[in-house]
């Protein structure tokens, strides 16, 4: 079982959560170009190793948070600014 440290609820089973994409900065829709917007929409780092992600506590507080995870071992640890997304 994988335990995810929710910054509001504490560690809970991964099945309570929904993965919500790699952490990245959303370009300002009014200032960006279509190409840059599509890069944001579609391109992914997809790294093998530690990475920073957004998760959603679906069956709990229903809030988004930031999580660090090793995509090879699935080890997780709370991100430094885990309450910010």
């Amino acid at each position: 079982m994988i335990l995810i440290p929710c910054p509001w609820c504490g560690p809970r089973n991964v099945s309570e959560f929904r993965y919500a994409d790699e952490a990245k900065v959303r370009p300002d829709p009014n200032a960006t170009t279509p190409e840059r917007w599509r890069t944001y929409l579609y391109m992914r780092d997809n790294p093998a190793g530690w990475t920073t992600e957004k998760w959603f506590h679906r069956a709990g507080c229903r809030r988004y948070f930031t999580l660090e995870r090793d995509t090879v071992s699935n080890a997780v640890r709370a991100a430094e600014a885990s309450r910010e997304v």
């Binding site: 890069t39 579609y42 391109m43 992914r44 780092d45 997809n46 790294p47 093998a48 995509t71």
Partner: peptide
């Protein structure tokens, strides 16, 4: 499944998630 890692070596970004 490993194609993002290989493409990265050539500096080519892919819209792929494993």
């Amino acid at each position: 499944g490993w194609s993002s890692l290989i493409s990265e070596m050539a500096g080519v970004k892919l819209p792929i998630t494993t």
